[in-house]
């Protein structure tokens, strides 16, 4: 009796979390896309959307309805199965990553010991999804973008993982809850300022942030979309909600990336001054990072493709290695 009760409660909990995370991802995609139009509008001395609802707040709803009513066109000659599967393959891992993110001490779908590893395994899938989507489109622009996305993501996965490995050496755990718990207290306890572990820690955060931008294919590293070169890159042939899912996934990836940066470097749910820890601090930090992501996109031109690879292979990877070695040496000495 008690076992089945527990089982049912577990099932309810699971369902609630699944629905909640999907809703969270979709809501963020909707309103980050509005921010993506409002924030640059503010940079660029214009209004941005303002017709639908007060201050254009209902614009994402209108966008969503529009996308849903559009026909899903499949190009003749394309691989229909992969073409339709690709958006799903892109969005699912992004939402799954959210499952292990601890939003506050008590709020988090799953507190598993290998949470960090889970995130990196999942986030590798979306690259595959984008690549297949571009390849299956039977479009030359999309094929070029598909080739680019693989090269780009391989290049940026390496410095990202090197930074994470160094961080794990310091924290001695893959559990995201524990990583945040270790950063309790004011901001000088955060990993970004853990200078006694490695003096390059703030730099490690910058490497992480750069790689996160590249991994989520955001400007100035938006090689796969590059609309002045490749029209819409891997998404050229997608219409309606097929395109919409890529769009949601892009923002879900930003949310995951910014959440992860918050958890790993910025003390998660802890207050910068050691007061009142909680969900709100997590959200503030995460959205400040999201703002930075938008800010970067609208301030910089796009890099060249080889410039992007050079940055990773010739600069970020050696730097991440130095950071890793330094951390190892410091740990040994301590």
């Amino acid at each position: 009796m008690s076992l089945s009760h527990e089982f049912i409660m577990g099932l309810v909990r699971l369902t609630l979390y699944v629905v909640g995370l999907i809703a969270f991802a979709a809501f963020n995609a909707a309103y980050l896309s509005l921010c993506e139009r409002k924030v640059p509008a503010w940079f660029q001395l214009r209004y941005g959307p303002k017709e639908v609802g007060p201050f254009g707040l209902l614009q994402p709803v209108a966008d969503g309805v529009k996308l849903l009513t559009k026909q899903l066109l499949v190009q003749k000659g394309s691989d229909v199965l992969l073409f339709k599967l690709a958006p799903v393959m892109v969005i699912t891992p992004a939402i799954m990553c959210l499952a292990v993110i601890p939003f506050s001490e008590t709020l988090g779908a799953r507190n598993i010991n290998l949470g960090l590893l889970a995130i990196f395994s999942f986030s590798a899938i979306h690259v595959l999804g984008t690549m297949l989507g571009g390849w299956a489109s039977y479009n030359k622009y999309a094929s070029i973008a598909a080739a680019r996305v693989v090269a780009q993501n391989i290049a940026y996965e390496i410095p990202l993982l090197l930074v994470i490995v160094a961080l794990v050496m310091v924290t001695r755990t893959f559990n995201l809850h524990e990583i945040v718990a270790q950063q309790a207290g004011a901001f000088w306890h955060w990993n970004i300022f853990r200078l006694q572990a490695s003096p390059l820690m703030p730099l490690a955060f910058l490497i992480f942030f750069t790689c996160m931008l590249a991994e989520s294919n955001r400007a100035p590293f938006d090689m796969i979309e590059a609309e002045s070169e490749l029209v819409a890159g891997a998404f050229t042939e997608y219409s309606g909600m097929g395109f919409g899912l890529f769009f949601i996934a892009e923002y879900a990836n930003i949310v995951v990336g910014c959440s992860l940066a918050t958890v790993l470097f910025l003390g998660g749910w802890h207050c910068p001054f050691g007061l009142l820890p909680g969900l709100h601090w997590f959200m503030i930090k995460m959205y400040v990072l999201c703002f930075a992501v938008i800010w970067v996109r609208w301030s910089f031109p796009r890099t060249q493709f080889y410039g992007l690879l050079n940055l990773s292979w010739k600069f970020l990877i050696p730097l991440a290695f130095v950071h890793l070695m330094l951390t190892a040496v410091m740990l040994k000495l301590a």
Binding site: P40, F43, Q44, L45, R46, A219, P220, D222, A226, E227, S228, W298, S299, F300, P301, R302
Partner: peptide
């Protein structure tokens, strides 16, 4: 030209 390079914001300033 900046649009060609993927930078959107300067266009709005120059248009202004």
């Amino acid at each position: 030209f900046l649009i060609d390079l993927g930078g959107f914001t300067p266009l709005l300033y120059t248009f202004d």
